[in-house]
Amino acid sequence: MLITQSAGKFLKRKSSLQIGDDQIDLSIPVVMGIVNVTPDSFYDGGKMEDEANMLKAVETMIADGVTIVDVGAVSTRPGADSVSTKEELARLLPAVQAIRKEFPDVALSVDTFRSWVAVRVIDEVGAIIVNDISGGTLDSKMFETVGRLQVPYILSHIKGTPQTMQDDPYYDDIIKDISSYFAEKVKRLTKLGVQDVVIDPGFGFGKTLDHNYELLNRLDSFKVFQLPVMAGLSRKSMIWQALDIEAKDALNGTSVANTMALLGGADILRVHDVKEAVEAVKIFCEIKASIK
């Protein structure tokens, strides 16, 4: 297939991420903990807006084995209201500054689709990972910015915007379509000097329930890119809708989905519940070690 033949030429298989002077080893899958400093988070209901609550949550994540803490200040759930750059920074900067001061050794990621936000955060706290749910579609300067800043970039797939992405999404072939999307964007990022790219198929971002499970079942299709893969499945509607429960009750389903993602080649699990995800990684590693 043309896509698979050409995609592997972009970069050699990456088994680490370079964040400033620090390196994250991805030879064993790692866990990214979610910190949403928004008033309308679907999971924690805005509890992280309080600095003391947020720092306590990060402390627990670190104790539970988190490798990366991902901080976001704009809700990207389906139909979420848009937020200005000014408001995003007003929420985000105090949070990342507090985390960096209290936990200077933890790797930080910022969940933003705005290049200017990434610049401001890096100016304040140093090198971070930029986690862009839009794959550069919502800010034309994002790719050149991360190339100039020389920071890792999480390239996510999305169809539409958070406001429109669930309006009857359609694919001719979801794996081929998303692979074409990644092929074109990885090529652009490489030409702009981005050294560390992680691909995220974007579970829930412009996908039906069936689309999401086909993606999960065929996650190993993206190994052809020779790049780390992130899976963000935590308590998403694809889990609680399938189980006919609410997001607050979807931990067990999340653990099952995370395990399937690990079996499909995921290198990073982005989660709300760090302890359970770390345990899933440990079990996966035991299974992998048993294969002779």
Rank of each mutant, 00 (worst) to 15 (best):
M1L: 03
M1T: 13
M1C: 04
A7I: 15
A7Y: 08
G8K: 13
L11V: 02
L11H: 11
R13Q: 12
D21L: 12
D22N: 13
Q23H: 00
V30M: 01
V31K: 13
G33H: 06
G33V: 05
S41G: 14
G45A: 08
E49I: 12
E51F: 06
A52K: 13
K56Y: 07
A57T: 14
M61Y: 13
G72L: 09
V74A: 11
S84T: 15
K86A: 10
E88P: 06
L89V: 02
L92Q: 03
L93W: 10
P94N: 09
A95S: 15
V96M: 09
A98W: 10
L108Q: 12
R114Y: 10
S115Q: 04
W116M: 06
V119F: 07
I122G: 02
E124N: 08
V125D: 07
G126W: 01
N131L: 02
N131G: 02
T137P: 04
D139I: 08
T145R: 01
L149G: 09
V151R: 04
P152E: 01
P152H: 02
L155R: 06
K159N: 14
T161L: 10
Q166P: 12
D172T: 13
I174T: 14
S179V: 08
T190R: 08
L192H: 04
V194D: 03
Q195G: 00
V198Y: 07
P201W: 07
F203G: 11
T208K: 15
S221M: 03
S221R: 14
S221Q: 12
Q226M: 01
Q226C: 06
L227T: 05
P228W: 02
A231Q: 01
I239F: 01
D249R: 01
L251Y: 03
T254Y: 01
S255N: 07
T259M: 10
G264H: 05
D267Q: 14
D267W: 05
D273P: 04
E286M: 09
E286W: 01
E286T: 04
